[in-house]
Design a protein around this nucleic acid. Sequence first.
DNA 1: CAGCTTATGACACAGAGTGTCGTCCCGCTA
DNA 2: TAGCGGGACGACACTCTGTGTCATAAGCTG
Lengths: 187, 187
Amino acid sequence: MPRWNPDARARLVAAAVELFRERGYESVTIGEIAERAGLTRRSFFRHFPDKREVLFAGSREKTPEIAEMIAAHGDDVSARDAAFRTLTEVGDYLLHDRAAQALRQDLIASSLELQERERTKMAAMGAAVADGLRARGLPVDDAEALGAVATEAFHLAYLRATREAEPTPFADHLATSVAGITRLLTV
Amino acid sequence: MPRWNPDARARLVAAAVELFRERGYESVTIGEIAERAGLTRRSFFRHFPDKREVLFAGSREKTPEIAEMIAAHGDDVSARDAAFRTLTEVGDYLLHDRAAQALRQDLIASSLELQERERTKMAAMGAAVADGLRARGLPVDDAEALGAVATEAFHLAYLRATREAEPTPFADHLATSVAGITRLLTV
DNA sequence: CAGCTTATGACACAGAGTGTCGTCCCGCTA
DNA sequence: TAGCGGGACGACACTCTGTGTCATAAGCTG
């Protein structure tokens, strides 16, 4: 697809990650990112709506897909299982390159702005889960609640997966989180 | 305490809410808010770190209190009950003026920026709950998980409480949310 | 080759935040 | 009463974000 230099978007992401790690997220300017990527400040904004989004490029707009995956499960699968099986797939996909994700999580942890955006992405995923569950016929309130809690469990599992030394399957992390939450709620 | 006109902070909040309702959050300038409050733009930033925060003035820094309330419950109360009893109190306090809260939620719903900040506030509450639970001796992972889920339940209950026509006790909303989540997780 | 599309550069501009300095008002103290 | 010190504010000045607009160069199509 690309016409000029093939990977403007990828170059911007790489330049941003490099600079953020060198000097910290907040002290890096969009102009500096663009310069290192061989572009102008104006072009940065043609690829990303703001500075934070450059670290969430991959997660962008996969939410319809998530809703479809959940809705695709048959009625023989409970709403809970449809949600968690789907989120297991999502987690496996995201954790394909664990080292990169761990690095990304370090950056996010270093900036309140990035944490704020991370929560937004998680909320979008929760809404997508809720959409899929509603398409399966689950009442709106239940869909919202399960979407929110499943996403919270996903996030906990995801954070722990990116931090562990020995990689263990994401499914295990997610199952542990869900079991923990269930146990804590039923006392 | 106040030296000049007694309520600079409150005047800024009032001016901001008025203007946001008149013309929408995004098209209002901080300079305009300050002007209506009889101050300068620079003084706005002496009271609030940014434009979003003016709508979260009340919720600011009550988190240590929440942690203390949870830790204060004796060992005869389960972690779950300590958390939810505390959040019931918080909800009752926040919903003292339901009309104002409903209005505030309308504003938040109108802006992605404000929704992002709302989630940050909720996350801060979740961390406070986790702090309190850890002080009670709950393992870190459990404290994080319960803090996150309890806060999610709180948020759902809070949103529904601000939207209903006939005011019903917040405790009922929260109990309903928790029961729903538990039911959905245990299939 | 002519015409259309697309990514980009080049300005220009409003607005968010921040640093700094001066000023005015208050309470306190001699 | 005179002076002192601190806290809240105004006045600039400045960097950076984010956006609108227009021009340009490269590719694609007929």
